[in-house]
Every structure is written in C-alpha cells, then in structure tokens.
Design a protein around this nucleic acid. Sequence first.
DNA 1: ATAGCCTCTGAAAAGGTTTTCATCTAGAGA
DNA 2: TCTCTAGATGAAAACCTTTTCAGAGGCTAT
Lengths: 333, 333
Amino acid sequence: MTSIKDIARLAGVSPSTVSRVLNEREYVRDEVRQRVLSIVKEKGYVQNNVARSMVLKRSFTIGVVIPHLFNMFQRQLFASMEFFLEQRGYKTQFFFIRWSEASEQAFLRRLKSETLDGIIFIHELYSPAVYQHIQERGLPVALCTFEKDQFDFPAVHIEEEASAALATEYLIQRGHRNIGLITGGHFSFGKQREEGYRQALKAHGIPCNPELMVRVPSYNPEAGRSGMITLLTRKLPMTAVFAATDELAIGAIKALYDSGIRVPEEVSVIGLDDIDISTFTTPALTTVRQPIFEMGKKSADLVCDWIARGHMQEKVELFSTTIVERESVRSLA
Amino acid sequence: MTSIKDIARLAGVSPSTVSRVLNEREYVRDEVRQRVLSIVKEKGYVQNNVARSMVLKRSFTIGVVIPHLFNMFQRQLFASMEFFLEQRGYKTQFFFIRWSEASEQAFLRRLKSETLDGIIFIHELYSPAVYQHIQERGLPVALCTFEKDQFDFPAVHIEEEASAALATEYLIQRGHRNIGLITGGHFSFGKQREEGYRQALKAHGIPCNPELMVRVPSYNPEAGRSGMITLLTRKLPMTAVFAATDELAIGAIKALYDSGIRVPEEVSVIGLDDIDISTFTTPALTTVRQPIFEMGKKSADLVCDWIARGHMQEKVELFSTTIVERESVRSLA
DNA sequence: ATAGCCTCTGAAAAGGTTTTCATCTAGAGA
DNA sequence: TCTCTAGATGAAAACCTTTTCAGAGGCTAT
C-alpha cells in the first residue's frame, strides 16, 4: 500500500506538504498542489483512516445501537439514519444488543475501547451504566424514540401517550366502547401507550377493564397474535382493539382472521407507527403515523451537529403524529 | 484516557510486559501478571482499538454491504450475520449502496481507505470494479445470495432457478395452467427465477405466454402491487401467480384484494423467500423457504474462517429450498 | 566449573498520519 | 541597504500499541 511518504518522495516534497494538500490547507503553492494531486491520482492513493483516526482522535464513525429486537420499525429508522449519516461523511457501525445484563455489559466494554465520534440509540437500554459512561466521556449522543430524564441528552421522539390516546379516541369517536389493548412489557413506550389508552377512556367516562388489556413479551406479529388469542379466549364483548405497535396489530388481525372473525366488520383494529408494510395488510391497517424517516434524519442531525459544534444544544425534539385512515376500523354509528 | 504506559508506570513494569499480559502471552511471571491485571481493573483501562489496528493491521471489523434496497429479506440476513459476527469477535460496519455508478464509485473509495478484515455482500453490485479491487487486495469476502463467476469468491446461495421451478411446479401440480409471473429487473436472481418459471412450464408442456409475465423495477410490496395490476388489466385467463419474492407476493395479494378478487379461491399466489411476515399475511403466504438464518451464519463463517485460516477455501455453499404450504394456493382438481 | 538453555523483562522500532515549530525566501516598506 | 512580514516548506514529535531483539538471571547437564 502506498503511503503519504511515497507520494511525498515521488512529488519531491515532504509528507507535511502532501498532508496539507490532501486536507485542503492553505500555504501550499498552486504548482506544488497540482503536482501532488496528479501523483495521488496516478497512484490511486487513499488516506489510511486508521492512522488518521489515531492522530485526529476521531473515527468518523457513528454507532447505531438497537437493543433487544430488530423489527420493521427499527429497520426503517436505521435505514434513514445510515442515509443521512453517510451524507454527512460518517460511517455507520451497527450494534445489536440482546436484552440481558450480560449483553449490555459486553456492549459497554466494546464501547469503551471504541473510538466512536457519536452514538445513536434506537429504543432504550436496560441498565444506566452505559448512559453514565457516555455522559462522563462527553460522547455526542442522540436518543431516538425515548427520553431518559436522568441524563441530559438530546432526544427524538413522539408524544407517546398523546399518540396512543389519539388512536383510542379515534375508536371511541366511531362509537366503540369495549376496546381491547395489546401492548408489550419491554421499553417505556409500551407502558406510555398503555397510559394513553387509559387516559382516553377516562376522558370519555369509559371504565377501564383490566380484562380487556393484555401485555405480551415482545413487539412482533407473533406476540400480537398471541395477545389477540388471549383476549378472545376471555369472551368479553369487544368491538375494537388498539395494538400498541403496527407489528402487534398485524398479528392481531391474523388471529382474528384465523378465528373467522372479520376485520373490521366484527372487530376493528388500530395500530401505531405506520410502518411500510401496514399499507399492504388485508384489510389495510388504520394507524397513527410516526414520521420515521424524519425522525431518523433528526437523530443523525443532532449527533452530527453536536460533533460539529463541540457541545450539546437541543434537548428534546418532539414529532407530531397523525391518524392514517385505512380499512381496519369500522364506524359503529 | 489512561494508556498502556500509565499502567506500566503504575505497575512498575514496561509497556511491553503490560501488552503481554493483556494479550495473554506467555513469559510473564504470575506475580507480575496479577499486579498488572489488578491495576488494569482499578483504572478501568481498555485497549485502544485504533492503535491496535494500526500495528496489527487488523480492525476486527467486517463490512456488510447491502446494495440498492434494504428490505425484509435483507434485514433478516443482516441480523443473522451480525449475531454470528459478534460471536466470533467481529464488529459489523454497515454499508448501504444506492444503485448508481456514482454511489458504487464512492463506496470503492471508502473501501480503499478502510481497514476492514473482511466483507460480506448481500446481493450483487453493478460494477465489477469493487470485486476487482477486493480480489487484488486479497480481502476475505463472502457473496451472499449470488455468485460472480468471473471472480473466485466463496458464495452462499440457493439454486435460484430450481427454487423458482419448484414454486411453479407446485402450482402446475395443483392443476394450474395459466400462471402469471411477477419478477424484478435488478439483480441476477430476478432473471434466474424467471428462467426457473420458464423451465417448469416447458417441462410440463405449457406454452410460455409473455403476456402473463411482468417485470417490475423493484422488489418491494408496492412493486408487487403494480405488477399485479398490470397483469389484471390484460384480462387474460389466469388462475395463479408466481411472485419472485415474498414481498412482491404481498403486494400482489393486496392488488387482488383491492380488485375484489379472492385469494386463493379465484387466484392463487405463491412467493419465494419465506420472510417472517409471510406467516401473517391474509391469507398466509404459501412460499418456498430459503434458510435465511443459516445462510447468514454460513456467510459469517466463510469470511471468519478465511481470515483465521489465511486463505480461501470453499467456493460455493448451496442451500436447499422447500415448499412451505400455507393458505394462498388452491388446488384446482 | 562452565556451557547452554530457558524464562522473564525492557528498550526501541514500526505503523501512517497530522501538526507544531522552525527555517527559508521573497517582497514591501523605511 | 536593512528590517519586517507573510507565504511556503520541512523536520520531528505525537498518537498508542505490538513485536523483535537483546540481555539478565537461574537452572541443568556435562
């Protein structure tokens, strides 16, 4: 591999000068610049990033960490982030963390020895040790899809409770009173969305029946299906279900279909997220839209801006959500 | 940040000795080892990976590159790879390439300046320049989901044509004669699957009607939907459709549903891939299963083994596919 | 007793880049 | 003519490891 020294020798200048040319510094004669550049091109020379990182103490790499699962929502977010990160000249290093103390410990160890310039979290981690380390180190960070009050980090997310209330209210306004809930146990948004559901019921004077609520261990369609089956076996009157995520909703619709219950004629289903696939379920899923692409961009921007500026700035970036009317909810009126 | 020198000073030994302890080399007195280790622990010291990379000329990083799209199939493959890569002590750097000459050129530049230990491709790239560079450099590589005959690289994939023929034959055996095809233009597997479809028809003496075949520009549900609509507007007799991927099939089912055509009563649909979501479509998608998880693992193994061994070994790893019978195909008999 | 070997340890070089500091040259102003 | 300044360049240090080489000390076998 050709190094900067080789180029320097060939161009009859010092490595310093070559470095200056490469990094577009001033104080290089135009003639010299041209000569160096032409030799760089001729030799197909490219800078050695490891050596650069070493002296610059920067890696031009942003870590994106996804804990616990890697579902469709996270994929869309991740794709969006990678897109904008690359636009701003950063590489994306992917961290996938299993939901266990041990896995998070291992991640912390990796993190410490890594020279990341910044880090983005999609959904929160279990233990605060990682956040603590990041804060002590002053590593630029963005929290996407959650907020960690105990730490002063910029965060990108939606108003979880309000969004869940929006979905529930949508059902109430269409005459539904016996509304089931399927949500997950992990992650704060699962509880927040449950809370939004409760609030909406309360606001309309509808008693909250614990028998109509079910918590499943994950957020994938399989969990949604099992949640729906649980709900069905209780044989309560129920004309609609709010599934805390679209993936749960997809599973719920499947369970209803398998039980011969028509959606939305007999039971309406509403989700929350608006992932790509939700347009393509049968019936198409009525849901609450999170601006996933924009949220990915914002997360990338927050970290990159922090790095560029040298210090943190914005604290919380709230995105608003909207109902997307499709086919899975029926009006009882 | 504490460095190896600080540890050395504190332990009253030389950096060499600390390095030996850290890397579990022999020739260190046990007493010294203990002393160093305790100071390492006390100071929370971790090795600087950039410096290590520099001298070792290894980065412990494998690049995973996904060209053009980032669909559900690729996501599952990617998740599998990351899982096994991490198990073997490698970090995963993610590269997403848009389908353009410029984007591939940019990737090549990035690749050259990177100190990757190996690289995995999911689906093929357009230009051979990247493969050429990798071959010249002797970089360990695995091609997942395709094979590039002109280069001598290990590859992990299924028998595309045979798998497509399997799907088509499944329809033929159930009495279907007017079978539509929806496939994509990009990527070799699109054409190979089309070829498998042709072969199966031919093997059963069924004439191949170009009017029943449609090529769409992508492999997502939206493309599948538009493909199905095209097919429907031709108003030909058609009792079944083979969609070259599950995502296309999902879109096709949606288009049928929207047109009031029942699946599978009026038109049967079969896909190929067996992605997670295919269990949850309504009706559940009958498809041909690729062992995605195993293929991800094998790809990771191929690269890691190559690195460990120092030279390439296996050439092609063929995985076999099987029909997964669900609900979207009806027997005409 | 001595040669030879083995274990343990440290000094120093190497890896490729950036940056600071010093030096040199040329031109401007007095 | 001399001094000053600004532009252009190079030498060398620094970044943090690992590894080679050499040397010291102790033990064994002759």
